[in-house]
C-alpha cells in the first residue's frame, strides 16, 4: 500500500509535473492556460498533470467562470521536510532490507 510519502514522491517524479508545481510555488495562483504557455506541452497534458498533483494534495483548484485557477499547497510537503517523520520512513525501509539480507544469509 503506498504511503502518503510515496504518493507525493510519485506525483513529483515526473519532470513536467514537477515544473508545473514549482511554477505554482514561485508564481502563485495560475490558470491552466497560463501554465500551458510555460510548460511546453499541450493543455490537455497540463490538465492531466494538474489532476495528479491535486490527487496527491499538492495543488488546490478554484473555479471562476470558465477558468480554473490552481495554487500550490506547499504545506503538503511538510511531512517530507520533517526530519523525524522522514527518518522514520528511512529506517523502516532499511529494516526491510536488513530482514531481506538476514534471509539471504541463511542460504
Amino acid at each position: 500500500m503506498p504511503t502518503p510519502h510515496d504518493i507525493i514522491f510519485s506525483a513529483l517524479a515526473d519532470p513536467t509535473r514537477r515544473g508545473i508545481f514549482e511554477r505554482l510555488c514561485r508564481g502563485g495562483e495560475q490558470t491552466v492556460g497560463g501554465l500551458t504557455a510555460a510548460a511546453g506541452v499541450s493543455q490537455p497534458a497540463v490538465s492531466k498533470h494538474l489532476g495528479v498533483l491535486k490527487k496527491a494534495g499538492l495543488v488546490l483548484d478554484r473555479h471562476e467562470g470558465r477558468q480554473t485557477h490552481y495554487t500550490a499547497r506547499r504545506q503538503a510537503l511538510a511531512p517530507l521536510l520533517d526530519w523525524t517523520s522522514q527518518m522514520t520512513e528511512f529506517w523502516e525501509s532499511r529494516f526491510d532490507d536488513l530482514d531481506d539480507l538476514l534471509k539471504r544469509m541463511d542460504q
Binding site: 514522491f9 514537477r18 521536510l81
Partner: peptide, 13 residues
C-alpha cells in the same frame, strides 16, 4: 535541493 533529489529518492522507493 529537495526537488533536485526527488528523482533519486523515487528511484529508491
Amino acid at each position: 535541493k529537495f526537488l533536485a533529489n526527488l528523482d533519486e529518492v523515487v528511484a529508491r522507493i
